[in-house]
Design a protein around this nucleic acid. Structure first.
Lengths: 140, 140
DNA sequence: CCGTATCCCTGCCGATACTG
DNA sequence: CAGTATCGGCAGGGATACGG
C-alpha cells in the first residue's frame, strides 16, 4: 500500500492545480476532509461500530448508543447514508419499520472505528493514569 | 441538564466481572467516551497522523496540517499530551524550540487514525459518487 | 413507530493582540 | 519561535412539539 508522500503544504496552497492532485486530508480544501469528519464525528463513530454485526431499527439504535438524541441520530444517519456508508430500508408497514445496515464500504470503515473504540476502552486506565501524572506535575 | 438515564445494556452480553462495569463507549457516562472524542476530534486525527513518522516542531506541524489555527493546534496538543498520547520536549534555547512526538501509546492510536485517513482518501471518489446518486434520487 | 421542524443556548473555533 | 489572552460569531446539538 505504498502511498505517495508528498511535500504537502497545507492551507497556503501554492499554485498547484486541484484537478489532478490526489485526495489529501492535510489540505484544508480537500473534500476528503469532510468525509473524514463525518466518519469521526461524535455519534457516527458509535453508530458505525454498533451496526458492525447486525442491522438495527431506529429506536433500537437509539437505545444502543447511550445519550444520543433523536435529532442527532437521524441527522448522523442521513449523513452516513448520503456518503454511502449506511443503507436505509424503510418498510411500508404500520407501524413504520425502518432498518439500518452497513453497505460494503460502510462495513470497511465500521471495522476500523470499532477497533478504535475497543482500543480506547482497553487503554482507558492507562490514559486516566497519564492525566493524573500530568495534572499532578502542573500543581505546585 | 441531566442525560436521560436508561439501563443501557450496550447490547453485548455482560461479562461476569461484576466488580464495577468495564469501560464501554456506548454508555453516555463512561470516561472512555471523552478519550475517544479527544482522539477523533477534528484536528487530533490529522495531528496524530502527521506525527506518525517523525517528530515536528510547533510551526512545522502547523504547516503540515492545513487550516489549523495556532489556538487549536496548541489546545489539541495539550489535550493529547495530557491523555498521554504526545510527548512535548521544550528545549531551553533562544529562540525557543519545542518538539512534539508520539509516545508508545500515541503511536498505537496514530497508526489507526492514519490508516483511516488513507482509507478515506482512497474511497473519496466512491463517496462522492454515492452523494450524487443520493442527491439525484432526491430531486424530482 | 419514525422521524421532521423549531427554538435557543452552549461552547467551539477563528481572529487578533500580546508575552517570554 | 512558541505560545497565552480575550472577544465574538456561528454552528452544533439538546429540548420540545408536531407530522406521516
Amino acid at each position: 500500500m505504498a502511498v505517495r508522500e508528498r511535500p504537502v503544504s497545507g492551507g497556503l496552497a501554492p499554485r498547484e492545480e486541484t484537478l489532478g492532485s490526489p485526495p489529501n486530508v492535510n489540505r484544508a480544501d480537500c473534500p476528503s476532509r469532510g468525509v473524514l469528519e463525518h466518519v469521526t464525528s461524535r455519534w457516527a463513530v458509535l453508530i458505525l461500530a454498533a451496526l458492525r454485526q447486525r442491522s438495527y431499527r431506529f429506536s433500537e439504535l437509539r437505545r444502543q448508543v447511550g445519550g444520543v438524541s433523536e435529532k442527532m441520530l437521524a441527522q448522523t444517519l442521513q449523513t452516513l447514508e448520503r456518503d454511502g456508508f449506511i443503507h436505509r430500508d424503510a418498510k411500508p408497514v404500520i407501524p413504520p419499520r425502518v432498518d439500518y445496515s452497513l453497505t460494503p464500504i460502510g462495513h470497511e470503515v465500521a471495522e476500523q472505528v470499532w477497533t478504535l473504540t475497543r482500543w480506547v476502552e482497553g487503554k482507558l486506565d492507562h490514559v486516566l493514569g497519564a492525566r493524573e501524572a500530568y495534572d499532578g506535575a502542573r500543581e505546585t
